[in-house]
Write a protein that binds this DNA or RNA. Structure first.
Length: 301
DNA sequence: AAGCCGGGGAC
DNA sequence: GTCCCAGGCTT
């Protein structure tokens, strides 16, 4: 095992978040659920939702036969509701095509909806302890700093960083190693305020010690090139969220007329959004989140 | 490559 | 107010 691998595992043993619910349960199904929840969503937001979800759907079969609308209800507070739709589809595919056994090879995992390069490897590493690195933005940042220097601006391509990450995984210890890097990235080697002082890897790191002001300046240059964003309250995303929330509030199995939905939603929307409701409803339907029947009543799918 | 998909928290 | 987050899909 590499020196860095050993150091990071030692750090994890005493500083890692070993009690995260999906680490305690530690099986491929729990990994599948948690990884979908964790896509672009912080640990602290997922933690309280995970247990309730697992209680409602204890295994892949329970999830597969559940109503999609109920799953979307369970998803409240997590955002990116399409993930719930895809997770449900994955559960159905796995029960129908693989007898409920969650695949453990990258190609098969990647063929499932909502499972990309990161999530496939995360399931392999966390669910099956296969020797791969689930390189996410967090791990990529750490590897970049360690071997190529400060990541802003990027010195090498993502593929180069990822290749270096794969080499680093200690054989047979992928679960702990990946967890260690992620915990390390969220507490020590953070994006905004890396704590190089006291970092156990500082001696191995090209980027260390990172000057906070310098990092801030580098980041500002990137930000300057960012396109101006419209306020969240004026975005279609916001309206989508309000519509789905309104439908979540309906008793399971019931629906609301399109007109009533519009009347309920409009007051909480920014004026620029009020003419867009029908189009947004249609987009939600295309995404498989809601259903509009021939009598113009709306419900969660 | 760029835009879209949520929303809460850090700074 | 801006950026960040255990990304993935579509165009």
């Amino acid at each position: 095992m590499s020196m860095i691998g050993a150091r990071i595992l030692a750090w994890y043993k005493s500083n890692g978040r070993l009690m995260l619910p999906w680490r305690v349960v530690r099986n491929p199904y729990a990994t599948l659920v948690s990884e979908f929840m964790l896509q672009q969503t912080q640990v602290d937001r997922v933690t309280p939702k995970f247990d309730a979800f697992m209680k409602a759907y204890p295994d892949i079969f329970a999830l597969a036969r559940a109503g999609r609308g109920d799953i979307i209800r369970q998803w409240v507070g997590l955002g990116y509701n399409s993930r719930a739709v895809r997770l449900h589809a994955v559960a159905q595919r796995i029960t129908s095509d693989f007898a409920g056994r969650i695949p453990e090879d990258e190609a098969t995992l990647r063929s499932l909806p909502g499972i990309g390069p990161y999530t496939a490897r995360a399931i392999m590493a966390f669910g099956y302890n296969h020797t791969v690195c689930a390189t996410d933005t967090n791990i990529a940042r750490i590897i970049h700093r360690l071997f190529f220097g400060l990541e802003i601006p990027p010195k090498v391509k993502w593929a180069t960083v990822d290749a270096r990450a794969q080499e680093l995984v200690p054989s047979g210890k992928a679960h702990d190693f990946n967890g260690a890097l992620m915990d390390f990235g969220s507490t020590i080697c953070t994006a905004r305020k890396p704590a190089c002082k006291g970092c156990p890897l500082a001696g191995d790191c090209i980027a260390a010690p990172i000057d906070h002001g310098l990092l801030q300046e580098a980041r500002k240059d990137i930000a300057g090139k960012n396109k101006p964003r419209i306020p969240f309250e004026q975005s279609a995303r916001f309206a989508r969220g309000r519509i789905v929330d309104r439908l979540r509030a309906l008793p399971a199995g019931s629906s609301i007329s399109l007109l009533d939905l519009q009347a309920d939603i409009e007051p909480v929307l920014h004026p620029v959004l009020r003419g867009d409701i029908l189009g947004i409803v249609e987009a939600l339907q295309d995404d498989g989140l809601i259903r509009v029947d021939d009598r113009k009543t709306v419900a969660l799918v």
